[in-house]
Amino acid sequence: MSNALSTQDLVPGDHGTDEPPRASSWLKYTAMKAGGALISLIMVVLLGFFAFRILPGDPVRSLADGRRVSVEQMDILREQLGLNDPLLAQFWRYLTELFQGQLGYSYTYNEPVVNLIATRIGPTVLLTGTAAIISVVLGLWLGQRAAWRRGSLFDKTQTGLALVFWSVPTFWLGLLLLLLFGGGLQWFPTGGLVTAGTTETGLPLIWDVIRHMTLPVITMVAVVYAQYLMVMRASLLEEMTSDYLMTARAKGLREDEVRTKHAVPNALLPTVTLIFLTLGGLVGGAVTVETVFSWPGLGYLTFQALSAPDFPLLQGTFVVFSSIVILMNFFADLLYRVLDPRLRAA
């Protein structure tokens, strides 16, 4: 009788093969997300040009600040910088340069913006990368432990402490650390990437950089790890009542195996999105920390460009910062799909 009633075509996913259909949609998904990221990038490029033209302030006047410059000289300077051209012409120049891999010429440094960014991006990646890794690992680890022992002394002190650090302003904490450990106790250098005029190479150089990094990294970690802790804690708490954990326990898994093998992988799903979203933001947050510790990175460069104002330089750092955020979101989308098989079907 079942022959008369075979319903092969009623159930989605049951077409002939028993192997679940996968992998083929990978390429499509990636292409789709990459397309989305590209559109965002184009928007950033457009915005990057026009937003800074609206900013108040005359770059030429600030360049001439404090010097005896005649009106004629300032006009010549404007002409040289191309500031007298119509806006659209300036935009066209910006675009063509961009396609040649150029981001313009900095007024204040008298150097191509690309070169400036290239030399500064390394220290920023070093600083924020280290801070990000430490705060993600620390936050997630503390978060899952706090959730698993909800209401315990560990949970209460850790969440309390994290929230205190979270609410502290970055620059204030940075200055405090600088005063205490840099100035007062003199355990750590007060600024820069390496000791000025150093000729060290190899291991001693690395050690020197580590000493210079310590305070800024601590400042960044202290301010951001709380959000990882809180999100991990919240999402693990949500998973803790799930039925599949009961299944795992019934199977005879140890409690810490139940946590690490079943609960945490599921709790990580919402956390991953947040991590990548904030990683982009972390780079932006470098502006404060790098300024406080005179760290020769993109953030410090942005600060200097802002105080000029140095349009091409600002434009450049803006495009770089935004691209990092967009890239991180793109990675988050890809990673999320790896972590959550349910998304692969969609």
Binding site: S242, D243, Y244, M246, T247, A248, R249, A250, K251, G252, L253, R254, H262, P265, N266, L269, L339, D340, P341, R342
Partner: peptide
């Protein structure tokens, strides 16, 4: 732990939620 599943096992209500969704 060694008694669990080897001597008695459970088929839980709502298989929808009793399996780990990411494995």
């Amino acid at each position: 732990r060694s008694v669990r599943w080897t001597e008695a096992s459970i088929v839980f209500q709502g298989a929808m939620h009793s399996l780990n969704p990411v494995r």
